[in-house]
Computed example of a mutant assay.
Amino acid sequence: MRMRPTLSWTPAEDLPPGTTDLGPVTGALSTGRVLVLSGAGISTESGIPDYRGEGGSLSRHTPMTYQDFTASAQARRRYWARSHLGWRTFGRALPNAGHRAVAAFGRRGLLAGVITQNVDGLHQAAGSEGVVELHGSLARVVCLSCGTFSSRRELARRMEEANEGFEPVAAAMNPDGDADLTDGQVGDFRVVPCAGCGGILKPDVVFFGEAVPPRRVEHCRALVGAASSLLVLGSSLTVMSGLRFVRQAAEAGKPVLIVNRDPTRGDRHAVARVALPLGTALTTVAGHLGIPLDGAAADRG
């Protein structure tokens, strides 16, 4: 379950300091069977903000909870108005050097898999295959009544038709694809229902306060069990949904390596935390391994 965003974690003073030495990361990848666990920090260079880093959105924005979304029609109106506007920007984001590096490592057969806490689809757009989307994807929508899945792009088209002239200017964009709007800007935004049964539509993502599907968790645990090491990229590991895999790897004696500029909740379990920007760090590692990065991005349509 993702913890409510109002909960916070303060790094302890006895955590090991960060380093700029990429040797352990290069060494682990050269050995192979590395499992990647990525968080919001890998997508910041694509223009998508994170939750807890410098200028993170949690300092000004409380993400929607599952309980609020399902209980209140007004909460759903507010969410969909903000998310509809945010999707125009979010859906156009392109993979950056960090995503391309992970895809290149996968093509070389160096990875045991990729688990991402992100809902942006940028790993797949960069060419990574078999990505486990721990918290789902904003590119899909699910009906809470009939369970039918549909395309977010199709929903965006329907919402455009239902809300002609809806062009507010957002104060900021958030990592969950939500744009900051006031209640006045939301106004009487019209939420469209499921085209099949008329039920409530929800993005196919795990909201705060909602549990990650058990089968997905067990699949991730199996990936950790089959890996030689775990490489965490751009995650503060503040919530248990990702931290549990770090703990599992450490308890099994598998090296945990973290690339994140700020301290994380998993530092005490790690061999090292590399405090460098992800694009720079992973491009450098790829260079050390003699792996060229493909600059072409896949079509996200």
Rank of each mutant, 00 (worst) to 15 (best):
T19Q: 13
L276D: 09
H135P: 10
L122C: 03
A195P: 12
A162T: 06
L282A: 09
L144Y: 01
A171N: 02
A93V: 03
I115H: 07
M64C: 11
D183V: 01
V232R: 11
G86H: 06
P193D: 12
A270K: 13
T26C: 09
D262M: 09
I42G: 05
L233M: 03
H269F: 15
W80M: 11
G266N: 09
S228A: 13
V217G: 04
L230E: 13
E210H: 12
A222P: 00
G165T: 04
Q248A: 09
V34I: 00
S8L: 11
G279E: 11
V186S: 10
L22A: 08
L231Q: 12
A286M: 02
L223Y: 05
T6S: 15
R76I: 02
A297W: 01
T19A: 13
T182P: 06
R244W: 04
L35E: 13
R157M: 10
A249I: 00
A226K: 14
M1N: 10
T70N: 02
P214V: 04
Y66W: 15
A296D: 11
V131L: 01
R152I: 07
T264M: 08
F189Y: 07
V246S: 04
A275L: 05
G27V: 00
T10H: 12
S46C: 03
V169M: 08
L110F: 06
L293T: 01
E161G: 02
